[in-house]
């Protein structure tokens, strides 16, 4: 399962929302989740990975999940994206 967002935060994905995304991904022990952007795919369980995407305002990012409860994972991640004012669903 996956969902694509466009970054709307002025600062791109910065430390606070990245922290929230990783903390959320870590809550789901039996699912793997990933972020893909600019041709690079990283695990969402790594804050360095997420920051390494170097996402800025206007960039697209695709979040995906596989494993147990993957729909719940995507829903939780979507909440973070929207509540943090980080991105909007494309």
């Amino acid at each position: 399962m996956e969902k694509t967002f466009r970054i709307i935060d002025e600062d791109g994905i910065h430390a606070r929302p990245a922290t929230a995304l990783v903390n959320t991904a870590n809550k789901f022990k039996s699912a793997e989740s990933f972020a893909e952007a600019k041709g690079k795919k990283v695990t969402l369980k790594s804050i360095l990975g997420v920051l390494s995407l170097g996402l800025e305002k206007g960039d697209s990012i695709t979040l995906s999940a596989t494993g147990e409860g993957e729909a719940d994972v995507i829903k939780a991640l979507t909440d973070v994206m929207v509540n943090e004012g980080l991105g909007e669903v494309q």
């Binding site: 430390a15 903390n23 790594s46 804050i47 360095l48």
Partner: peptide, 16 residues
């Protein structure tokens, strides 16, 4: 306190 939360995640980061 947020910044220290991020630092903690780096300490736990599998990529590191």
């Amino acid at each position: 306190a947020e910044i220290f939360e991020a630092h903690l995640l780096i300490l736990n980061d599998p990529e590191l």
